[in-house]
Write a protein that binds this DNA or RNA. Structure first.
Lengths: 162, 162
DNA sequence: CAGTATCCCAAGCGATACTG
DNA sequence: CAGTATCGCTTGGGATACTG
């Protein structure tokens, strides 16, 4: 039996794996990611736009680079000093559906008046962007009740008493 | 000029509004929400399954109820003592697309081996569930580059120098 | 401009003990 | 069973000063 399973059946686990929620391990990472989607790339701009202390920002950016969400590159325009830039990687850009889902939710349940902090538009047609839920077989899913949620193989196994 | 705009042009704001990211203000709320989607409803089960201290769990559940994500109801099976239950509200269930998007992302970029902690299946056909991005005009969006992200009206206004 | 280092404070958390 | 109260630890974060 794996350690994981053992931990599940005995005392407290260290903490069940949190997975994707971990992209937001603190209260600043999300702000930085969103800002990156706006197109912000420079340390200074992140600092001003996000209102995050340089020390904290430095640490968060380092973490995000370590996690492969952002990429630090040296950009040098001709005749100017080089500049460091933080740009979203493919992995980082892949977070967009999450951002969209978050935004859709907030627009519906938090600020239904359209005063969302994030505007997401289809570049080609200008329409707002949203997420739709489907299954791999192609069916559209409209209600949460159509989805069966269960702990996956990476989570604590369901105990026999569940 | 609004306070918000003023804060944007002057010194540091208290903190730019964080919106939907705020559903995960700490490291435990997400775990609880996910657990609720598994079908967990009782305090005791949340405590054991999530590995969260009762004091913290109590506070988080209270917050989630206050936010309208969970609903506390007294459930009484015939012949038994009444039980408190925490159940997802419509607002809470509406978080599902976010969970799916998070899970999709994690499966692709974190645990591509299928050992995800969360299994989400279409109840009718058993296929895994995923999110798709579309625009309000009905176009499918396949690449992040097709989406234009900008601060919305609820965010700090873009400064003139942006 | 792009950070790093230090200091101090506030919040989050687990452990534990206790109550209805 | 379903919590609440208290404690002390640890982490995160803003302010500030400093470096390449």
């Amino acid at each position: 039996m794996s350690d994981e399973a053992e931990a599940a059946t005995e005392g407290r686990p260290e903490r069940w794996r949190r997975d994707a929620w971990d992209i937001e391990p603190d209260s600043t990472t999300g702000v930085i990611i969103r800002e990156a989607f706006y197109g912000t790339r420079r340390f200074d701009d992140f600092e001003r736009h996000c209102g995050i202390s340089p020390s904290v920002l430095s640490a968060r950016l380092r973490d995000l680079v370590a996690d492969g969400i952002l990429e630090k590159t040296r950009y040098r325009a001709p005749g100017t000093r080089g500049r460091d830039e933080y740009r979203l990687t493919d992995k980082g850009r892949a977070l967009l559906p999450i951002l969209i889902a978050l935004n859709n939710w907030a627009e519906r349940w938090i600020v239904p008046d359209g005063a969302s902090t994030l505007s997401l538009l289809h570049r080609d047609c200008g329409s707002p962007v949203r997420t739709a839920v489907t299954c791999a077989s192609g069916h559209d899913i409209t209600a949460p009740s159509e989805v069966l949620a269960a702990p996956g193989p990476g989570a604590r196994p369901a105990s026999a008493s569940d």
